[in-house]
Design a protein around this nucleic acid. Structure first.
Ligand SMILES: [Mg+2]
Length: 811
DNA sequence: ACCAAGCGGGG
DNA sequence: GTGTACGCTTGGT
């Protein structure tokens, strides 16, 4: 019997002669594309009320809407439900579609207590039970069968994960991007507007296909007869390239559905799937595009999903994400003119082809860059790339728990009913602890934070839905969270606490290896482990979670508050002064104590912290400034600036790090912060400010410095409140330029009467004499520095130079 | 204050 | 498909 070593990348199932067969698609170790067919039977769990129900279940079969269903076997198994031992029944049915039918039927039976895991997708159940992890080596025994398929199908007689968990490397990625015809101002219309060009970029190909000829020396541009021929070429390229991954940017909702629709319209057979199927759309609130045998990596879904908290961007456009992650941008062309150029001036099409190819290239580079992270997530969660790509944090956690439960003999609690869901949505969790800063300039600060505060609390205090006890429990060793009137058993490690502990310790091991040598794959693994660990707290409070527990989620934040306040008390007792604290971080003033003492403080704390909990010394800062909040005397949260020992600045929350502030206001703010933090020289900063104000008044500063950038978040027509950026977008539209939502609108406020929005102008159309000095001084610069100077007792009048003039007059 | 509806990305 | 995203903003009441 031949043996195959292969990496599965995609999975599906089919009914063959009435029986379900799993199809794994992937590549062998030596690069051959193969499929593996394996029989597998669907099942779920039932908890009986009476033992006699087993026989009743065994004999269950019937018909619904002309389709028959049947239970093929029922097996008794000792399992655990939230830690409690139960006599569960493993109910095997003949086909996956029987599961929901049998499930609904028996839920009504009096002798059934509850039904579990009757909604786990069949292919996922297979991967879990067979311990198969996508993109990770699998050993298959079997013969090649004769099936209608683009690639050989091995009928498996045995399948098991390889010992060494080796990861798939060198995957073939093909990036796809299309540009389509659209008359100005009209929305996307897949039925009526053709695809004009289609760009593909891969390791061995970089090409634009288009169907209007023009003179060009570009070897990357390929001309075809018409749109149908373009689609044929796309099919050919995919079949030639045999990519493991097709990637795009919002290709779930745009490129692939568009290609599919046009192919249907033009009767082009797009049978690019391994089983000769085409692009399939899974429609819901959102569309997911799939191709059998190929993983579809939609970059935007990963950036907005699993990586959301790790990549800070206020826009998820390809341009914004590419410039953030790659330092590269899209080409600049007037896309709104493409239809007109196509119709009337085809000789001007070349820049559009270049633009199209650049989009494909950027997407390819993004996919390549993010693939280590996505691969590690696939290995961690155990689901195909196609799924991990699109999952939210809570879905990732739940999938991970479903993969882990077997080790604990656990079966998953039921998903909440609509009623239960509504109840869960009503309750609110109390948030984290915040010590408001007192506005001021401080010297010699030490900053600390608890490493992975919430995950370490879960692991160290055995916070888990299966360890929850009454607050007055007599159980020995139970840990009471008096704040939430609940206790946690310590007799046995809880399921979720154990899983979180494993994630944290795995990450610590990876970090240890990384200290010795750099490895981008291990970096990615550490990052994904951190993301997963940090998702558990949110999961426990996520209404749709199977392992939802309000008590656990509330206890996590309560303990977070408890630990941080206790640490602050100890710091004050030791002679430090707390300046600011939020959730898991503490900013202390050294009060004359040494840097060494500041560093040693963590040891005194860590000595008394349980389990995996640890306070980390983040660093020493020679100076820092906290300012007051907008409408209150107290200090603002998440808004401060620190000076590092190497002279660099850490700026949080200030306009200087926000987009919709003018260039000049950001510049002034950063300059003032630097002068104050470096030399505590508010006079010098004030002089600088006066210089800038004078420069603006005398129009000596360039228009470019006055530019304000604001993002258009929706179509112009749907704005009711017309801000200056909307007014500008309207003007541009009036000139025949259609501005799409997501566009960053640049504008300058000019002099004249009336509302700001009536005085906003395009920077390119504004002369240096035209910008409104008063607006920039009073509405941009002063608000940006007012709170900073307030710390030194400087009034707004002084900032404007009026105070100084008065003083001059006094002499 | 609360709730329902809309929206993102793509052309 | 053993199925129905999600989190935030906006506008109405
Ligand atoms: Mg494009």
């Amino acid at each position: 019997m031949p043996t195959f070593h292969f990496y599965p990348i995609d999975i599906t199932y089919r009914i063959v002669s009435g029986k379900p067969v799993i199809y794994l698609y992937g590549r062998t170790k030596d690069g051959q594309r193969i499929a593996v067919a394996d029989r597998f039977d669907p099942y779920f769990w039932a908890i009986p009320q009476k033992k006699s129900v087993k026989e009743r279940l065994e004999n269950l079969s019937g018909e619904k809407d002309g389709e028959s269903y049947s239970v093929t076997s029922v097996e008794e198994k000792k399992k655990r439900l939230l830690g409690k031992e139960v006599e569960a029944l493993k109910v095997t049915v003949s086909q996956p579609k029987d599961v929901p039918l049998v499930r609904e039927l028996i839920r009504e039976w009096d002798d059934i207590q509850s039904v579990h895991e009757a909604d786990i997708l069949f292919t996922r159940r297979y991967l879990i039970d067979k311990k198969i992890i996508p993109m990770t080596l699998v050993v298959v025994e079997g013969e090649e069968g004769r099936e209608e398929s683009r690639i050989p199908v091995i009928a498996a007689t045995a399948i098991r994960p390889a010992e060494d968990e080796e990861t798939m490397k060198g995957l073939g990625i093909l990036a796809v991007d299309i540009e389509t015809y659209y008359p100005k101002g009209k929305g996307i219309d897949m039925d009526n507007n053709p695809i004009l060009m289609l760009a593909v970029h891969g390791e061995t190909i970089s090409r634009v296909i288009t169907w209007k000829r023009f003179a060009t020396k570009r070897r990357s541009i390929e001309f075809v007869q018409d749109e149908a021929a373009l689609l044929h070429r796309f099919r050919e390229i995919v079949l030639e390239e045999q990519p493991d991954i097709i990637t795009g940017y919002f290709s779930d909702g745009f490129d692939l559905p568009y290609i599919k629709r046009r192919a249907e319209k033009l009767k082009v057979n797009l049978d690019i799937g391994a089983d000769f199927s085409g692009i399939s759309l899974k429609k819901g609130m959102d569309t997911e595009s799939k191709i059998t045998g190929i993983a579809h990596f939609d970059v935007i879904k990963f950036v907005r999903g699993g990586l959301r908290t790790s990549i800070a961007t206020d826009s998820y456009s390809l341009n914004a994400v590419a410039s953030k992650l790659l330092g590269e941008t899209k080409h600049e062309v007037e896309l709104d003119d493409l239809a007109e150029v196509w119709d009337k001036r085809p000789e001007k099409l070349e820049p559009y082809c270049d633009y199209n190819l650049q989009d494909a290239l950027l997407t390819y580079q993004l996919a390549e860059k993010l693939l280590p992270n996505l691969t590690e997530l696939v290995k961690l969660i155990g689901l195909p790339l196609q799924d991990c790509n699109r999952m939210s944090f809570s879905q990732l956690v739940e999938s991970f728990l479903l993969r882990k439960e077997g080790e604990f003999d656990e079966i998953a609690p039921e998903k909440p009913t609509e009623h239960e869901l509504a109840k869960r949505r009503k309750v609110r969790l109390q948030g984290a602890f915040v010590h408001e800063p007192t506005p001021g300039l401080y010297h010699d600060l030490a900053v600390y934070d608890f490493r992975s505060l919430y995950p370490s609390i879960i692991a160290s205090h055995n916070i888990s839905p299966d360890t929850v006890r009454e607050a007055d429990t007599l159980e020995e060793g139970a840990f009471v969270v008096r704040e939430e009137k609940v206790a946690y058993s310590t007799a046995k490690k809880g399921f979720i606490a154990a899983v979180v502990e494993e994630v944290i310790t795995r990450r610590m091991r990876v970090k240890d290896i990384l200290k010795k040598k750099k490895d981008p794959f291990l970096e990615a693994r550490a990052m994904m482990l951190k993301i997963l660990a940090n998702s558990f707290y949110g999961y426990l409070g996520f209404p749709s979670a199977r392992w939802y527990s309000f008590a656990c989620a509330a206890s996590v934040t309560a303990l977070g508050r408890r630990y941080i306040t206790e640490t602050i008390e100890k710091a004050e007792k030791a002679g430090f002064k707390v300046l600011y604290s939020d959730t898991d971080s503490i900013f202390l003033s050294l009060q004359g104590k040494s840097k060494a003492a500041a560093k040693k403080f963590v040891d005194d704390i860590n000595e008394h912290l349980p389990g995996l909990m640890e306070l980390e010394y983040e660093g020493f800062y020679p100076s820092g400034i906290f300012v007051s909040a907008k409408d209150n005397k107290g200090g603002a949260k998440k808004r401060y600036a620190l000076l590092r020992e190497d002279g660099s600045l850490v700026i949080k929350g200030f306009e200087a790090v926000r987009r919709n502030t003018s260039v000049i206001a950001k510049e002034v703010q950063e300059h003032v912060l630097k002068a104050i933090l470096e030399k505590a020289d508010d006079k010098k900063a004030l002089n600088y400010l006066h210089g800038v104000i004078k420069g603006i008044r005398e129009k000596k500063l360039a228009v470019e410095k006055m530019v304000i950038r604001t993002r258009l978040t929706k179509p112009i027509s749907s704005y009711d409140a017309i801000g200056p950026h909307v007014a500008i977008a309207k003007q541009m539209k009036g000139k025949g330029i259609d501005i799409a939502p997501g566009a960053i609108i640049r504008y300058v406020v000019t002099t004249g009467g009336g509302r700001i929005r009536d005085r906003a102008k395009l920077p390119e159309a504004t002369k240096q004499s035209e910008y409104d000095a008063d607006y920039y001084i009073n509405n941009q610069i002063i608000p940006a520095v007012e709170k900073i100077f307030e710390v030194f007792g400087h009034t707004k009048e002084e900032l404007l130079g009026k105070g100084a003039q008065m003083r001059l007059l006094e002499f």
